[in-house]
Design a protein around this nucleic acid. Structure first.
Lengths: 237, 237
DNA sequence: TCAAAAGTGTTATGATTACACCCATGA
DNA sequence: TCATGGGTGTAATCATAACACTTTTGA
């Protein structure tokens, strides 16, 4: 802000005219269904409405810190995958400056015990993405954008694995991709692809007490961190 | 903002604590080199520093409107390709709330006469992306992010053509991709690929007065609008 | 007739697809 | 022994890469 320091002190009021809110699309993959955490509220007429987890930026917080604190509040853990989408602007009901939402999306594993406890304490619900209704328009825009980003990003990085447990079967991975992308994938081709990518790693464990041939458990390779960071993958669906 | 209306009126001051600035990475492809528009400034010591085109949000402006007005100011035309990157947060020198930059990137054709005129009126310079120096840290972050986005997006949509004239040769397109991606591309394979994509369309015109075989001019297909919007392409470099 | 850039064709390789098949397990 | 889902193999097809070649133009 070099430039602003000397010249713009008199216009500082212009900078502070927009309301800013942080909105967070929190995904999970419970029961092989892609779900989003929604917060329920009753309006004046007693109707129930839903919204994305959100908060305003508190004193001393960074914007990504606010997003992490939203995760902590609703999920109990703040260290899940979290990434910014972009800033959304809306006409303000009370100001001639737009209201601004900075959207984030997060990916959460719900087997975590911390998670379950918190979900019951707050007025919160996991809703399958294609069964969401009653979401206000501005949050719907953010949700749609997050889905588009999610679909793109699971194809060019390993971030999708953030929705799976530490140990997973290849079919679980396949179902994750099928569910999120809304496509059908050929089993044997998917296996070959993912195995020769060297992305996962046989854990020498197997499913137990299943009424069919037990599947092998795999875990993510350490190199995934690079793949995750650099978006070097290409699933090409 | 249903939820905010009743409950958060007392916390309204928390919303207005962050300074917001709009920063714009304006690209062109002058002389087959990818360049960015930088604004020069002299600081107190008389040193010249550079920054991205930027402004604060004016009363009654939307955030994308502010970005368009920045384009208009520096380029003379506001209807070039313009897209948001994301919001960037930085520690503020004067507040315990972060300063926020909302980054945009634009793609501009400099043969436009309007453009040239304006460039000379302001303290502005087109600098090749790999020769940029003296940019402050926060703008450098935005520039780097915009380059990453640009590289990704030209591979999955036709937005790269926004840097080319209406009529272009296939080799110009190829050089654009080589320059932006920093790779070498095989000529005959590139031609085949782009032609069978049905993305461009023979204009029945040819180069004139060139000291070698004249190249055909092509123009973008009408369908490109969809490709542009839906990111359905896949250049796969 | 030469250099320079436009433009074509051909073959080898590798990824993707489609599909048929075998394996392990509990009911 | 059957149903269910796990897992393997193979052949056809398609996209990509590498590279040699021909064409057109001004100097």
């Amino acid at each position: 802000m070099k430039k602003g320091d000397e010249k713009d002190t008199n216009t500082a009021s212009q900078y502070t005219a927009n309301k800013i809110e942080i909105d967070c699309v929190i995904f999970n993959f419970e029961g092989e269904i892609l779900k989003v955490l929604l917060v329920k509220q009753k309006d004046n007429q007693g109707n129930t409405t839903c919204q994305l987890a959100n908060d305003c930026i508190k004193k001393g917080e960074t914007i990504s810190g606010t997003a992490q604190n939203i995760l902590k509040k609703y999920i109990g853990v703040g260290n899940f995958f979290l990434e910014q989408l972009k800033a959304f602007g809306y006409p303000s009901p009370s100001s001639s400056y737009e209201d601004i939402s900075i959207g984030y999306y997060a990916m959460v594993k719900t087997e975590d015990k911390d998670v379950e406890n918190n979900v019951f304490n707050l007025n919160v619900e996991w809703v399958a993405v294609n069964e969401i209704s009653g979401l206000n328009d501005k949050h719907k825009v953010i949700l749609d954008y997050s889905l588009k980003e999610l679909r793109q990003n699971i194809c060019k990085s390993a971030i999708g694995f953030n929705l799976l447990p530490e140990k997973f079967t290849l079919l679980q991975v396949m179902h994750l991709y099928e569910e999120i992308l809304g496509i059908e994938i050929n089993k044997s081709n998917f296996r070959r692809k993912i195995l020769q990518m060297n992305l996962v790693h046989d854990s020498n464990q197997k499913e137990e007490a299943v009424s069919h041939r037990a599947a092998k458990f795999y875990s993510l390779n350490m190199q995934q961190h690079e793949m995750l960071a650099h978006r070097e993958l290409n699933f090409n669906f």
